[in-house]
């Protein structure tokens, strides 16, 4: 049986000082190493825009931008992002002041239930930063890491094409 004193001795503080900027705000934190970036954002910083779908890097609902590059925040250990600049959906725009990509998703009905949408939009912004998409087939391939169980894909593609200046602004309706 573990005594109170033993339990106290076994409780080692493994938290690590971690500094990061999240959507423009600077945070100095002590983070337990096993905390994912997604959990830190949602539970620690109360930024619940990034969603936990599968928590295994398969659905893309947790996609955020790290120094402008899209990654699955569920597979990131927060302590590994000391010094990084994170942008979540909250940092892309706000109500009444949406970013171009957010507005295009609204205009093209690029969602139904909306659960995957923050990840879809962060992923689409990341894809444009990367600059490797030229065609609709490229868009579909390069956004394949974001799953939409409602099947809003045609309108998501239309929203992204609009931002890329590829026409078809009426969406898939």
């Amino acid at each position: 049986m573990t005594t109170g004193q033993q339990a106290l001795e076994e409780t080692v503080d493994l938290a690590v000082p971690t500094h990061m900027t999240v959507s423009g705000r600077s945070h100095t934190l002590r983070v337990e190493p096993w905390t994912s970036l997604l959990d830190l954002l949602r539970e620690g910083l109360q930024l619940t825009g990034s969603k936990k779908g599968c928590d295994h890097g398969q659905c893309g609902a947790c996609t955020v931008l790290v120094n402008g590059v899209r990654v699955n925040s569920c597979l990131c250990l927060a302590v590994m992002h000391d010094g990084d600049a994170i942008t979540t959906i909250e940092g892309l725009g706000s109500e009444g002041n949406l970013s171009t990509m957010q507005q295009s998703f609204v205009d093209h009905d690029g969602y139904q239930c909306g659960y995957c949408t923050p990840g879809q939009i962060c992923s689409a912004v990341g894809m444009l930063n990367e600059g490797h998409a030229r065609t609709e087939a490229d868009i579909r391939e390069q956004l394949s890491g974001n799953v939409c169980r409602c099947g809003a894909y045609p309108n998501i593609v239309a929203a992204v094409k609009h931002v890329m200046g590829m026409g078809q602004t009426e969406g898939g309706r």
Partner: peptide, 9 residues
């Protein structure tokens, strides 16, 4: 292989 997000990491 994988997805863009995974390849980036």
């Amino acid at each position: 292989g994988a997805s863009a997000q995974l390849r980036n990491k």
